[in-house]
């Protein structure tokens, strides 16, 4: 009855074994994303892979492996253990630089082989449409009048938005009260609902609300205005000494071989020059095109780490 076909099943299974043995032979690069599926790093990884595949830049195949948890430390630990391996990549975002400094993990961004920064993200200071604040000067004035009373919202503790709040406080000579939410969506809804006074947001987190007239951008953290947002002044031109870039890069395990580094950097460069990357990913996510390879990228990471260390130290959050 049920199992008379058992023998036949066995033969079919045997045939299938041969098929999947064939599958397993192709050279694959494991692309580790230490954050969950659907997040910023995950989207970047999947589009990078798509840019490489669609434009047939290499024969090697990629598997995107999300290893979320521990503020990026689980995925990082996994990649650190792949020391010396050539077929592993990992995404890196600024959070992975600040987390170990805040005592929330042991693996530092400098522990990996830096391959290249492949995109840049910035922060915007945003208020809702009904806010009395029309400019950064208004915010600074209000913060000065009531020290520590102005409510600033952002995502996560001791990460980008928290540090930007500190930098703004330093540049304006004021003190503000920072509250952490989980993710840009929650920050925006609390801003629109009037539960916080000002908020930090990446361009892609607030551009919909700004275009729809629900929110206003006061300033951007870059040196100059962004090409995509020509009406938004930079803090620098307004006379506030603060510049902040969020890094989005690709790293390899420690001790990656020279040939593999060269091969990877070359492939990343080609991938970021494709239309797929420039048009579908960067424009879609309102990111800035930035490619900084190898040694220069290592320097960027080190500078960022220094800046975070200084900021977290002043905020009393440094726990190395």
């Amino acid at each position: 009855m049920y199992f008379k076909k058992g023998f036949r099943t066995g033969l079919i299974s045997l045939a299938m074994v041969l098929v999947f043995a064939g599958f397993a032979c192709a050279e694959t690069i494991e692309f580790v994303v230490p954050w969950s599926a659907g997040g910023g790093s995950d989207t970047m990884a999947r589009f990078l892979v798509k840019s490489i595949r669609d434009n047939k830049l290499t024969d090697a195949d990629f598997v995107v492996a999300n290893k979320p948890g521990g503020n990026g430390q689980i995925g990082s630990a996994y990649v650190v253990n792949k020391k010396g391996r050539d077929n592993v990549w990992m995404t890196l975002s600024s959070g992975q630089i600040s987390v170990p400094l805040a005592g929330l993990g042991k693996i530092k961004a400098t522990d990996f082989t830096a391959l290249a920064q492949i995109a840049g993200d910035v922060n915007l200071l945003v208020v809702s449409k009904d806010s009395p604040f029309k400019s950064v000067a208004d915010v600074a004035k209000a913060a000065k009048a009531n020290p520590g009373k102005l409510n600033v919202g952002g995502s996560a503790t001791a990460a980008e938005d928290h540090i930007c709040t500190y930098l703004l406080g330093k540049a304006t000579g004021t003190k503000m009260n920072y509250t952490a939410f989980s993710g840009g969506g929650e920050v925006m809804s609390n801003l629109l609902g009037g539960h916080i006074d000002v908020a930090w947001a990446n361009p892609n987190e607030c551009i919909g609300q700004v275009k729809g007239g629900l929110a206003r951008m006061l300033a951007v953290t870059t040196e100059d205005r962004l090409a995509l947002l020509p009406d938004v002044p930079s803090f620098k031109e307004l006379g506030y000494n603060m510049v902040f870039w969020q890094v989005r890069g690709v790293h390899g395990p420690p001790n990656m071989s020279k040939e593999s580094i060269a091969w990877s950097v070359d492939l990343l460069k080609k991938a970021t020059e494709t239309d797929t990357w420039q048009k579908e990913y960067l424009t879609g996510k309102v990111l800035t095109s930035r490619f900084i390879p190898g040694a220069d990228y290592t320097k960027v990471i080190k500078e960022n780490e220094e800046m975070f260390r200084e900021a977290l130290g002043s905020m009393g959050l440094l726990k190395e």
Binding site: G38, G185, M188, Q209, Y281, V286
Partner: peptide, 25 residues
């Protein structure tokens, strides 16, 4: 509003944006 109400809608929001569509008012 262009504000995601759950983990999955956050990903869907990303999809809208990558098609050059702006969820929101």
């Amino acid at each position: 509003l262009g504000v995601p109400g759950s983990g999955t809608t956050a990903v869907l929001l990303g999809a809208f944006m990558m098609y050059g569509l702006q969820p929101g008012p």
